[in-house]
Structure formats: C-alpha cells, structure tokens
C-alpha cells in the first residue's frame, strides 16, 4: 500500500468519523420531521452546538423502545428545571438521523415531572431569542396551569 492510498483511506476514515459525530453538519429544526419520544435520561451534558454562542443542554435518552437519542434542548441558562439521570421524560421535537443507529432530536417541547416546557415555536423559532425574554424558562404548562399553547 503506497502513502497516497493510505492518505486517501485516512481522509475517508475522517469523513466517516465526522458523519458519525454526535452533532450533524447542517442540522436545523426541520418542522416537517416532528416526532415524539418517551424514555429515560441516560446522561446530561453541555455542548457548544452553534459555535461559541452558548453551551447547550444535551441529553442522552434511552427511549421506551430501546433506541438511543441525543437531544438538543436549549442554552443551559434558559433551562431552570431540575433534571437528573434516570428521570422519565417526554420530548416533542424535530428528528435528524445522523447515521443508522444515531438519532438526533432538536426539542420543541419537553415534559418532565408533569411540567411541560416549550422551547421553540411550531417552526422552530427559539423561545430564548424572543424579544423581551431575558432570563426565564420557556412557556410552562404543568399541573399548576402556567403558560398556554
């Protein structure tokens, strides 16, 4: 095997790694690909999804049908609800399939401990970017009756 061929294989491996990376290259909230999942929080992390703008809350969710989802929630400053590994969670969002077994979801609304938190509008506009919203959480709808759809 010559170096040229090895370099070519190396580039292909890099491309494959990039494809398998947790964050897809042109990922956006596709309002035509909405889905609901329900499952358990496997891990909680933070990631600079959109450049260095701010760190996003990322959840790994094991769905009830045993599929593993990487869920992009919102900037970590915007999320004010306690969340822990092992919690049951329900998510409505836009599904992106980055590879055969890697599923990526951009959350529009999440339900946790009976509380519903709206993070984006129906076309994906982020609640944290709305005018006049500075430090709160998304629209909440829970047993307390806060917020509205």
């Amino acid at each position: 095997m010559n170096y040229k061929k090895m370099f070519f294989i190396y580039l292909q491996v890099l491309a494959a790694i990039s494809l398998l990376a947790q964050t897809p290259a042109f990922h956006y909230f596709d309002h035509n690909k909405l889905t609901d999942i329900q499952g358990e929080v496997q891990s909680i992390g933070y990631e600079e999804v959109y450049g260095k703008k701010s760190e996003f809350l990322m959840l790994s969710i094991q769905s009830d049908d045993q599929r593993l989802f990487q869920v992009e929630v919102c900037p970590q400053w915007f999320f004010a609800t306690d969340i822990a590994v092992g919690m049951k969670i329900r998510i409505h969002g836009s599904l992106l399939q980055t590879s055969a077994n890697k599923l990526y979801l951009i959350a529009q609304e999440i339900s946790i401990k009976g509380e519903r938190i709206t993070l984006r509008d129906s076309k994906g506009f982020p609640m944290w970017s709305q005018k006049g919203r500075s430090g709160g959480q998304g629209k909440r709808r829970g047993p307390g009756g806060r917020g509205k759809r």
Binding site: F29, K123, K131
Partner: peptide, 20 residues
C-alpha cells in the same frame, strides 16, 4: 437563530409567514 430554518424544500418563488 439557533437551528431556526423554516424553509419548505418544495416552496416556489416568494412566500410570507409570521414569526416572533
């Protein structure tokens, strides 16, 4: 705005829609 891309791949010419 992070992830906000409300395009319709089959849309033609010009359309308007409401956003925040």
């Amino acid at each position: 705005f992070e992830g906000y891309l409300p395009i319709e791949t089959d849309s033609q010419s010009v359309r308007t829609f409401t956003s925040p």
